[in-house]
Computed example of a mutant assay.
Amino acid sequence: MLVIACPGQGAQKSGFLSSWLELPGFAASIEELSAAADLDLRLHGTESDDDTITDTALAQPLLVASAIAAYRELVRDLPAPQVVAGHSVGEIGAAQIAGILTAAEAMEFVKVRATGMAEAAAATPTGMAAVVGGDPEEVLARITEAGLSPANVNGGGQTVAAGSLEGIDALKENAPERARVIPLAVAGAFHTDYMAPATDPLAALAAGLSPADPDITILSNRDGKAVTSGREYVDTLVHQVTHPVRWDLCQEELLSQGVTGLLELVPGGTLTGLAKRGMKGVETFALKSAGDLDAAREFVAAHTRN
């Protein structure tokens, strides 16, 4: 049983699409998705440096487009996965893969989301820090004591705290026992109330869409559960801008469903790393370059038969 996982912001690296754009089908997809987002995603996926593509307004559309284009190349004549899930902005790519949104709708949605979150982040200096290790209850307690929010509860011993820069400093100074606090190079406190200004334009866009119900089981970051209504899923995408990503609950649900393989779409690595720690016994595949495609297709074929 296979799950396709779409990574979230922070997974992007300079030049990560270079090998992929040598594939005519992938290149055509990126051109299509660039037009829908009114962004030069080819340029940003090949020539732009890390500082440039750290910009939320670019990173989010780039990641969603990459997931959509890579999925098209991956599956082609193969069976569809039994489950799809995305982490944070990866949920939008997952929605397109599951048939809830068209590719154009997904790109319009992510552009509005990214622009709104970038503007919200610029309004107030905030940040995020990964807390790795430690007792889970103590970690959450120390995050709260520092006036922060647990923005990403990722499982596998990793929680991401978000909030004021002063709070991040306080958490570093009063770190949980047996835990490391690692500040992240992000623009702001995503998935907290600081992102509230981004929700109104996104809700307005969502209200005008006519999402289809998913044709592949899709999990929500809200609670890790499958969502059977396309309308509910899109509404949850708006809700998630200011609420925590519960990837730990997604992993628990995948285990309960009997998933045997997790393939993370380009740029793979983050979610497979979490799965290795939090989903023992599940095989993983991180799709990074076009050179991985044949092996990835074998992985898909093997696990969709289970």
Rank of each mutant, 00 (worst) to 15 (best):
T199D: 00
E253H: 12
F190C: 01
L209V: 06
A226R: 11
Y194E: 14
L202D: 00
P244L: 01
E177T: 13
F190E: 06
R178P: 00
P244Y: 01
E232W: 02
P197S: 04
E252A: 15
Q240E: 14
A185Q: 11
H243Y: 04
F190K: 05
P197V: 03
T228D: 05
K276T: 10
A161S: 12
G157Q: 10
A187Y: 05
T236D: 12
V238F: 00
P211S: 12
G268A: 08
S210F: 01
L209A: 10
A196L: 13
S220N: 02
G188D: 10
R180T: 12
P197W: 03
G230V: 03
E173S: 14
H191R: 00
G261M: 11
V266F: 11
H191K: 02
I218P: 08
C250M: 11
K172T: 10
G261N: 07
T217W: 02
L262W: 12
P214Q: 11
A187M: 09
E177D: 14
T242F: 04
G268Q: 13
Y194H: 15
Q158T: 12
E253G: 10
D215A: 13
L263G: 13
A204W: 00
L184C: 09
G224C: 12
L274V: 11
D223C: 11
K280T: 15
V241S: 00
C250F: 00
A198I: 04
A207Y: 00
W247I: 09
I168T: 11
G273M: 13
K225A: 13
G230C: 03
G188R: 02
V266N: 15
T192S: 10
P211M: 07
D193M: 09
G278R: 05
E232Y: 00
I216F: 10
C250S: 15
C250V: 15
K280M: 08
Q257T: 05
L254I: 11
A170L: 08
M195A: 07
V181F: 07
L249Y: 04
E166K: 11
L184N: 04
G278I: 08
A207N: 08
K276V: 07
L255W: 00
H243K: 00
A212M: 06
